[in-house]
């Protein structure tokens, strides 16, 4: 025990001593914790693990994933906001970072003031899908059908703050028709009911829908990305199908606590760029129907700009829907 403690003491002292002086020079000197504010095995966790493994190689230190789930990702984000700004605690969060600023009226942190930025990781497109026996032949027809039957058409989502909830709100706001919203606890049950024809429409990430669309168990009307996807070549973009400006993506970014030295963020950003070029990461992302962020996007400045613009973009949509998570 004694020896062990002494050893631990020595290494830790060394870490403390160095961290205050020239942090970026020797950074990183020990393993880094990446907090994922969702439970293990979910889509965000998957993105984090794929990227973290590859980043670890470039950094020469292991990145350990810690899942701190709960309250729509705000618990995990809150933990990082309060963590030491030494570059050894990172946060990988998705679009919820921006939307929770409006969805939650009382957040234990300030979204814009409590974090530094590393870079964007990926932007997962969404798909507008319906039960497979929906009659409409294209998105226009679907919108007409929805407008004509607005008291009957149901839109499923995976709970407040979920990707499908955000996209559903955006869809209803784009077609200016409130439909019957049916919330579920998680994507699984929502998708089950869509497969069983119990609900009509859902707008969800390609991660969850691609295989179902390919298998013909649900019908896809549009993807929400600027360009068509390789995995779903026949599905038009929402803009092509007539919904002007309807581009929604579940973007993921890596953050550090406020006060983390710029050099550390740059070092992490460099590792992120390397990871995003890793063919293994790209291949896995492709299977999920997404692509790694470009080199220009995997930078602190790009993430900061994205976060600010997305907060501004979602605020009116969420306020109009009048749904809050607290």
């Amino acid at each position: 025990m004694k020896l062990f403690k002494a050893l631990a003491c020595a290494t830790a002292f060394a870490a403390v001593a160095f961290s205050s002086v020239a942090q970026a020079a020797g950074y990183p000197e020990r393993s880094i914790t990446m907090i994922v504010p969702f439970s293990a095995g979910g889509p965000t966790d998957t993105v984090a693990r794929l990227v973290a493994e590859s980043m670890s190689k470039d950094l020469g230190q292991q990145i350990i994933i810690e899942n701190v789930g709960g309250a729509g990702g705000t618990l995990g984000a809150g933990r990082v906001a309060k963590a030491d700004a030494d570059g050894y605690t990172l946060l990988l969060h998705h679009i919820g970072m921006a939307t929770s600023a409006t969805l939650y009226r009382k957040l234990p942190y300030d979204t814009l003031k409590d974090f530094e930025y590393v870079g964007l990781v990926t932007d997962v497109p969404m798909t507008i899908v319906t039960r497979k026996d929906m009659a409409a032949s294209d998105l226009k027809g679907l919108i007409e059908f929805a407008k004509a039957n607005k008291d009957k058409v149901t839109v499923a989502n995976a709970g407040i703050g979920a990707a499908s909830h955000l996209c559903g709100m955006m869809f209803m706001s784009a077609i200016q028709t409130p439909l019957v919203t049916v919330p579920y606890k998680g994507t699984g049950p929502a998708m089950t009911d869509l497969l069983g024809g119990q609900v009509d429409i859902m707008c969800d990430q390609t991660t969850n829908t691609t295989k179902q669309i390919q298998g013909g168990t649900i019908k896809a009307y549009a993807v929400t990305s600027p360009k068509r996807l390789d995995v779903l070549k026949d599905v038009p973009t929402a803009v092509e199908a007539g919904l002007a400006g309807f581009e929604v993506g579940i973007w993921h970014g890596v953050y550090t606590p406020k006060g983390t030295p710029a050099a550390v963020n740059e070092r992490l950003s460099k590792a992120l760029k390397v990871a995003l070029k890793d063919p293994n990461v790209a291949a896995r992302f492709a299977e999920l129907g997404t692509v790694p962020s470009s080199e220009a996007d995997a930078t602190p400045a790009a993430l900061k700009a994205k976060l600010e613009s997305e907060i501004a973009r979602w605020q009116p949509v969420i306020k109009a829907a009048g749904q809050y998570a607290d």
């Binding site: 095995g41 979910g42 089950t192 295989k211 179902q212 291949a283």
Partner: peptide
Amino acid sequence: TLGIPANPVMALMVGAMIIQGIVPGPN
């Protein structure tokens, strides 16, 4: 058969499959 997790444990299995590059689905 559906690619849908029935419980939290199955949801973890889905995560594991995706990490392995297998996206569960009807096919």
